[in-house]
Write a protein that binds this DNA or RNA. Sequence first.
DNA 1: AAGATGCCGTGGTCTGACCACTAAAAAACA
DNA 2: TGTTTTTTAGTGGTCAGACCACGGCATCTT
Lengths: 207, 207
Amino acid sequence: MTNTKVYLEIVKQLREMIAADNLKSGDKIPSERELSERLNVGRSSVREALRALELLGLIETRRGEGTFIRDFRGNQLVQLLGTFILQDEKAKLDVIETKNLIEMDLLRLVLTRADEKQLIKLKSLVETNHLNDDQFFYQLIELADNYLFSRIWLILKDYHHSLSLKNEEYNRDSYLMLIEALVEKDQEKTLATYRQLRNLSILTDKY
Amino acid sequence: MTNTKVYLEIVKQLREMIAADNLKSGDKIPSERELSERLNVGRSSVREALRALELLGLIETRRGEGTFIRDFRGNQLVQLLGTFILQDEKAKLDVIETKNLIEMDLLRLVLTRADEKQLIKLKSLVETNHLNDDQFFYQLIELADNYLFSRIWLILKDYHHSLSLKNEEYNRDSYLMLIEALVEKDQEKTLATYRQLRNLSILTDKY
DNA sequence: AAGATGCCGTGGTCTGACCACTAAAAAACA
DNA sequence: TGTTTTTTAGTGGTCAGACCACGGCATCTT
């Protein structure tokens, strides 16, 4: 009869409840027992719904305290899916290729968005600090001003990490060249510098 | 004492189990009761792990039959996250922008990968069938031969749908022009055609 | 006032019990 | 013997109740 699984229904109701009460990150949601009573379902069903949301990184549970809304940035979903997906060699190549493509898009976005002042600021940051590759590109991501895009990049970065490749040298000079090209709003030069940074063959990677 | 939650441990063990037995899409995994015994945990804990995996789209449960490995395409995860994330206007613009960027990357990949034969085949497909926009780009995605990339696009497509925009006209002519440009391996022309298809202002979208 | 104690609510887990459903075995039928 | 029907065993779906471990808070003690 009841074709829709209870826990999915609970997920739905929880979402509505959160929206209705305008709950925000860090707010507490009702206890499992209270939800069980209010929704007329068993506590185990409530827990199945909560576990699903927890794995998605949407809530956080603390024993002895309660369950809280969570900011959905940087959930562990990625690693999980990654360990399931990243199996064969082809998949690894896909990760690298995709990350490179995304980063070039990122540069294109920065070219259209970032003003010189922001870039100068980044330049001094690179000069005075010892930014690693992830940190440098994370700075760029912020200049691109596209949250969804940054999420995708963060995921790819994690995937890339889980490949546990060798490199990760320090490339301050390349970063500075990249910034210079961005300041000049020279797309050709920007992308060329990036390819050099990533050791991409110009022949094989024309994109 | 046991700081790691049991259900997460079960998720991990399930993953190892799947890898060890080399289980593939459609294969059956042990029943909840059997897992409960083999892992020395309560059945409810097993279920919490399974529900989490189910929501991720990694498994599928059928009452009366069992639980099966699933191919991780088209899970409802996207809609779920979408309803949580896609709230303000800025987010919507981000989706559109990101999808456009990804699709242009897709075209670049096709330029480097697809041979003329495949493109000719796609051309006849477009000519004889009434492909909508999603279907057309899905065909292209396959030519790009990057599974991770296709996943990203599929997610973006779903996000885009959930925005419930108006358009979705039929653009057979544009598709054919796009294919022609791809056959000629003319990146400029390809991207220009795409921008026209998406009504992107050349001024605002230089990427 | 500061620290120690105990109570209560919370999530974490297990157990046992049904129910609904499926598929395969067994029985009944032809 | 071959087909249909019935039974049965196994599975996921759900619930209720019972503990445990932990955090916060009021209370008591010093």
